[in-house]
Amino acid sequence: MDFITNFFLRVLAFSLLWIVLVNGALDSWVIGIPMVIMATFISIKLLPSTPISFIGLVKFIPFFLWHSLLGGFDVAKRVFYAEVKISPTMFLYRWRLPEGLSRVFMAKVVSLFPGTLAVDLGGEYLQIHALDDSVDLRLELMSIEKKVADMFKIDISAVER
């Protein structure tokens, strides 16, 4: 995406956000316009444009909502028992995603999914704290990672592991 398109898409997004924040009050644009422009420049500086696959994103949202719902149920199930049902473990998973936003994104997602919490994501490995050591964490993380990679238009199939 070239700079101009990128710039105007961000202006559009921040303008929409401003409208939502002020409930569409027209006179607020006196402050809104400078704010939108500032936010656009800061966001370009802090988060340069990342290729995102639209189809990947559309597929990811229901996947995420469903699994984070399961994450909540999973906790509820464990705490309402008379005896707390957990057998925690630490688990190291070797990244296939490259360094950067996609890794941070996946770590956040994993922390909301059932039974997994991202502890450390620097370096070669993603370190996970898991509530249940009887599940195949590696397989689970691989499938999440694949979906994240699709969304960020990254090909991880060739990465050796």
Binding site: S68, L69, G71, G72, V75, V84, I86, S111, L112
Partner: peptide
């Protein structure tokens, strides 16, 4: 409940983040 009943900081974080999000 998870915050009160789970044994350590890691497990308590599980409980808080996931169920509060839902």
């Amino acid at each position: 409940l998870g915050l009160l009943r789970f044994p350590d900081v890691y497990t308590r974080l599980h409980a808080l983040t996931k169920s509060d999000n839902v």
